[in-house]
Design a protein around this nucleic acid. Structure first.
Lengths: 188, 188
DNA sequence: CGACATATTGAGATCCATCAACCAATGTGG
DNA sequence: CCACATTGGTTGATGGATCTCAATATGTCG
């Protein structure tokens, strides 16, 4: 958990209290049920979702097949980067895998707040940096690890993914067939 | 070419001329020869390199093998992100593939300038956003394309890579063996 | 219970890596 | 200026990892 948010919390805690309160005033709590979509292909990602509980999955369609690209748990921030950044239609979906409580913040509200509090741009920069590091590492794994190694890495580094998410999605996330994952499990 | 810099140029052009001149005052021109290293593993990436001409390759070592992760051409900005962001020792190398002219800017100088010109933080944010989009796309390709498709994509989208860079490095960049690339070439 | 999603297992096909030999172009030192 | 080393690229044979397809559990929920 807490994939991105540690540095961000630290940054926020150093802002003056008025600014902090302005930030905290933006998000609204929402509750979604299993299967609900927070974002669909072709729609612009206008909101960010900070999870209070539950699980969200991000995926896109490639030749009719769902390719899972990310899972979000408590305290993670879910959004479709490219669409959020560019405010153009997304090619990704955000779907709730079980009952999930999120704090939703409007992109436009963030922009407005950045106008009056320019120091918040740095907050977005920090967030982006965290994401770059995460992406970079993930690419590294695709570059160097085989199916078994990728699975075991997940098992060690993020066991909550293995424990809470159907094998189907995990396989897709790792770029491997479900059967292969199943066989890796079986082999000790 | 111009992988990242289009939006950045636009942003810079909208700054007031004093600020623009402050930015332009930072970089110093340097010339490197084939084989030279701009960064080595274990060293902190304290500089960014904007290429005026030549080619740079970024790679890391994995079990003794070089894994190429990026090529830089004219107008690209070469640096090791993770190390540059965190100012911790890099696990990557930056190596010059042919005589290369770069404009070098010190990270500390950028930080100083950001203190006096906070609007430049947004410039860094834009840069980071471009990189996220690029990384995201690259990950997508590793997730969905086979060797042939990856090669043909490179051929279509960035022919200058194919034309100017040894097959060895291209293969590594695509996560494929050199032999496979060679066979793809031979098959029409 | 029946229906549907999820997971396992087997068999065959396929992609691609590896290893090895070989070739062509280039460069270097004697 | 030649002999030879070096670099970059090709080609062939083989094996292994993993995909695909299909059959069969196992589980869950109305």
């Amino acid at each position: 958990m807490n994939k991105y948010t540690n540095k961000l919390d630290h940054f926020i805690s150093q802002l003056n209290t008025d600014t902090q309160q302005d930030i905290m005033a933006l998000p609204k709590q929402m509750v979604y049920e299993k299967g609900d979509f927070l974002l669909k292909e072709g729609t612009i990602c206008k909101k960010s979702f900070v999870l209070e509980s539950g699980i969200i999955r991000k995926f896109y369609l490639n030749e009719g097949k769902e390719i899972t690209t990310e899972f979000y748990f408590k305290d993670d921030i879910a959004l479709s980067f490219k669409s959020y950044i560019s405010q153009e239609p997304s090619n990704e979906y955000l779907q709730v895998l079980e009952k999930t409580v999120v704090m939703v913040t409007d992109y436009d509200d963030v922009l407005k707040l950045q106008k009056t509090h320019p120091e918040l741009i740095e907050l977005e920069l920090l967030f982006m940096q965290q994401y770059v590091i995460w992406l970079d590492e993930r690419l590294f794994h695709f570059h160097t690890l085989d199916a078994k190694q990728k699975y075991q890495l997940l098992l060690n580094k993020t066991p909550h993914i293995i424990q809470n998410i159907p094998l189907n999605y995990i396989a897709s996330y790792l770029g491997v067939s479900p059967e292969t994952i199943s066989r890796i499990r079986a082999s000790k």
